[in-house]
């Protein structure tokens, strides 16, 4: 059952990543692009967790945790740049 479901889940998350990448390239405003980047890192965490289950390795959680931390900091910094025109005042 799991060996059937995991490839389907990989395909669905991959499609989600492709749609997000399209919005990142097209996005009319800078805020759209930042939102696309934010969604991109959340989707990447989903993909990494799936890979961890698929390969039966707990090694990928550290990577997922690091991506979560750095992605949040990046989103906040970019939003701050849009709001104030500067990151560190």
């Amino acid at each position: 059952m799991l060996s059937l479901v995991i490839p389907i889940a990989f395909a669905l998350v991959g499609l989600a990543l492709a749609l997000t990448l399209w919005r990142l390239l097209v996005g009319p405003s800078p805020a759209d692009r930042i939102l696309a980047l934010d969604t991109l890192y959340v989707n990447t965490i989903a993909l990494l967790v799936l890979l961890g289950i698929h390969l039966e390795s707990a090694l990928y959680f550290e990577a997922a945790l690091l991506i979560a931390l750095m992605g949040f900091v990046g989103t906040v910094a970019l939003c701050k740049y849009l709001l104030r025109g500067d990151i560190i005042e």
Binding site: A9, L19, N43
Partner: peptide, 19 residues
């Protein structure tokens, strides 16, 4: 299997909404 499929489908729906 149910949890994995639910998670993948919701991820896809979120990105579909974004696009």
């Amino acid at each position: 299997s149910f949890l994995i499929l639910t998670g993948a489908v919701f991820t896809l729906i979120g990105s579909l909404g974004l696009a």
